[in-house]
């Protein structure tokens, strides 16, 4: 059975199903239940935006509120994972990674390799990413490139409810540490999602739209902007293929390269800052492995090299728009070498 639910509900459902299936799955985070130790209602919050609401009634103490001590509880989730549990730890806004990054990149990410292949750390660290929420510089970042840089971490960033559910279930079952990035501006977006359990394998991109003229690659919120751009371009007769990466580490190189070999043109869209991000990574890979197929220079559309501004008038300029993606596509269609130099 399938019905329309939001990405927020899909994440809640994935947690519920996996907690039912596997008693070693526990969920922890700040106010993910809410009202702990207080005299009012139980399950008073269910997470800051209500993603885990209702799970406490179903699973009781397997949902744990934490003190505001990210180093300690994220580290404890990692330690518990190394000792046989499958913790899902919520880091409310992934910007707060700054407080507890050591436990993630020096500990969790390295155990497997550093201990000679003898350790498994099946932890999921999930939290919000992305701009557009008027949440300002410390609650809006797309830090995905920091995570993909680290060997040992897997990095997931769904663009819709269907993928969020299947990818979160896969993340929980996966035996490596996973950073699960939820774009806060996609929480309310609904699509058809089966009620039953299903897992989407890592490293498989989703081709959302077929086209022979240009390949647009993105992930998260900007996938939707890319689709808007593709629809607009189709009116002028340009058919864009739109690829949603879904997982950033591992990444589906084959789908990207096969598409570019057919279209000869590539636009990569990334909400992260322009230096050393997913866009530069993909551009470099295609440049190295499919240079012969390219009919034009690769174009990148990213956020600017600035922190996320608070003012709505600026934040609206910050996130890549459908227009900026369409313009980038048009640059790939102009003769070789004619595109202006785009400053980072």
């Amino acid at each position: 059975m399938s019905r329309k639910i939001s990405m927020k509900q899909a994440i809640n459902e994935a947690l519920d199903l996996e907690m039912r299936r596997d008693p070693t799955v526990i969920v922890m985070g700040e106010d993910i239940v809410g009202g702990t130790g207080a005299k009012g209602e139980d399950d008073a919050w269910g997470g800051v935006l209500g993603v885990t609401k209702g799970l406490y009634a179903k699973h009781g103490d397997r949902l744990m509120d934490t003190p505001l001590s990210e180093s300690a509880y994220i580290g404890a989730a990692i330690g518990a994972a190394a000792c046989g549990l499958r913790p899902v730890a919520e880091l409310m806004f992934l910007d707060f990674m700054g407080v507890c990054f050591d436990q993630i990149f020096n500990q969790a990410a390295k155990f497997r390799y550093m201990f000679g292949g003898k350790a498994e750390t099946p932890v999921v660290i999930r939290g919000m990413v992305g701009a557009g929420f008027r949440a300002a510089a410390q609650h809006s970042q797309m830090l995905t490139p920091l995570f993909t840089h680290i060997p040992g971490l897997k990095v997931v960033c769904p663009s819709n409810a269907y993928d969020a559910k299947g990818l979160l279930i896969q993340s929980i079952r996966d035996n490596d540490p996973v950073i699960f990035c939820e774009h806060k501006n996609l929480y309310g977006l609904e699509c058809e999602v089966p009620a039953e359990s299903y897992a989407i394998p890592f490293g498989e991109a989703n081709v959302l739209r077929d086209g022979d003229d240009v390949t647009i690659v993105s992930y998260g919120l900007t996938v939707h902007r890319a689709m808007e751009a593709a629809t607009a371009l189709a009116k002028d007769g340009t058919e864009a293929e739109v690829i949603d990466l879904r997982t950033l580490s591992p990444i589906d190189w084959d789908t990207i390269v096969e598409s570019v070999e057919r279209t000869g043109r590539l636009v990569v869209v990334d909400e992260a800052h322009p230096r050393c991000n997913l866009a530069t990574d993909i551009a470099a890979f295609v440049g190295q492995n499919a240079f012969g197929a390219l009919k034009a220079g690769i174009q990148m559309v990213t956020a600017p090299h600035t922190p996320v501004p608070f003012a709505p008038s600026l934040e609206d300029l910050y996130v890549p728009s459908a227009d900026s993606i369409a313009s980038a596509v048009k640059r790939t269609l102009s003769p070789k070498g004619a595109s202006p130099r785009i400053a980072a």
Partner: peptide, 12 residues
Amino acid sequence: GYAESTAMEWAV
């Protein structure tokens, strides 16, 4: 007394 919805008596 509170951090968001969580009581200080519990968390400290």
